[in-house]
């Protein structure tokens, strides 16, 4: 999402500004401040809960998430739904499946989409950004050329609304869960690329690099042993924030009908998009997945924001 670029460039700058000369102490310092941040703690707790849910959820689920065990009790065509009761804590969904089980199993699917997509965006983006940043820092005409070409490409990707990018991917690859992951991941590539490049450039101008250079350390060594590791922190912060976006974007794709092709497999985005059709009769069926999505996204955002503030010395109170 290009709306993130504002943060990208800023974050990139921030890391370079820190007075510390090695990455490790920066992280120690940041972690110390993170621990005292309420935002970070809440965020981390939510994430921990969500991850735990995603891992053990399917085992905790009292019933199969796909079996339409009670399908003769729900009459969607008459607006008759079954709410929470002793055997079904969240009630039944529109096809007579246990909503609680679907919610639990859905957590894993949702996390899977978010994590895989972000990993993809992170990997490809970091490669491109790293390439570009390294080329530019190493300098020379060739380096600048490489940087220009890569950045043109990245700008192009940024120009496209993320949903359209996703649609294009889905059109070529066909509809599948993999497509959703790729689509959401591809959207994040330019963010990570720009971020890493910016951070590397900023690091390139920092004192310790200049010092190292003055001492005669070879440029290539500086890039790979100093600049690159020190530039990764904003990228990791961004990854946390991107996880939140990924989950929401995946939900939007489901709403547009580009989600997981097998609607029997529960995923929060699909569940939310679907339940809007019978919101009047069974609002809770929309509320469960919506809350799931919002709270999880909130968790990742909180932690990401807190990390960002922790890394930003200017925002210290």
């Amino acid at each position: 999402m290009s709306t993130k670029t504002d943060k990208i460039d800023r974050l990139a700058e921030l890391t370079a500004r820190s007075e510390t000369s090695t990455g490790a102490s920066l992280w120690v310092e940041a972690f110390r401040r993170l621990r005292s941040s309420k935002m970070a703690i809440i965020g981390a707790c939510v994430i921990a809960l969500f991850v735990a849910l995603a891992i053990v959820g399917p085992w905790l689920a009292p019933y199969s998430a796909e079996a339409q065990t009670w399908r003769n009790e729900v009459f969607r065509n008459q607006g008759i739904f079954v709410g929470p009761r002793a055997e079904n804590w969240f009630g039944l969904d529109h096809l007579g499946r246990d909503e609680f089980s679907r919610f639990l199993v859905g957590a894993r699917q949702t996390l899977l989409v978010g994590v895989v997509a972000t990993l993809l965006g992170f990997t490809v983006g970091a490669l491109l950004g790293g390439l570009s940043g390294a080329a530019l820092t190493l300098g020379g005409r060739v380096g600048r050329r490489i940087d220009t070409v890569v950045m043109r490409f990245i700008d192009m990707m940024l120009a496209l609304p993320s949903l359209l990018l996703a649609v294009s991917v889905a059109a070529v690859l066909g509809q599948s869960l993999t497509t959703v992951m790729i689509a959401v991941g591809v959207v994040q590539i330019p963010i990570f690329a720009r971020l890493l490049r910016g951070a590397m450039l900023a690091q390139g101008g920092s004192d310790y690099v200049l010092a190292a250079r003055a001492l005669g350390v070879r440029k290539r060594r500086i890039v790979f042993s100093q600049i690159l590791p020190n530039s990764l922190s904003p990228v990791i912060v961004q990854a946390t924030l991107c996880l939140a976006t990924a989950i929401i974007e995946a939900a939007a794709l489901s709403y547009l009908g580009l989600g997981n092709p097998d609607p029997a497999v529960p995923e929060w985005g699909v569940m939310l998009a679907q339940s809007q059709e019978f919101f009047d009769a069974a609002p809770m069926l929309a509320v469960y997945p919506a809350l799931g999505i919002i709270i999880t996204a909130l968790g990742f955002t909180l932690l990401g924001e807190a990390m960002r503030e922790a890394l930003d010395p200017k925002l210290r109170s």
Binding site: Q78, F278, D280
Partner: peptide, 8 residues
């Protein structure tokens, strides 16, 4: 009209 909305 979606069948579920008719009665409502």
């Amino acid at each position: 009209v979606a069948p579920g909305d008719v009665k409502k």
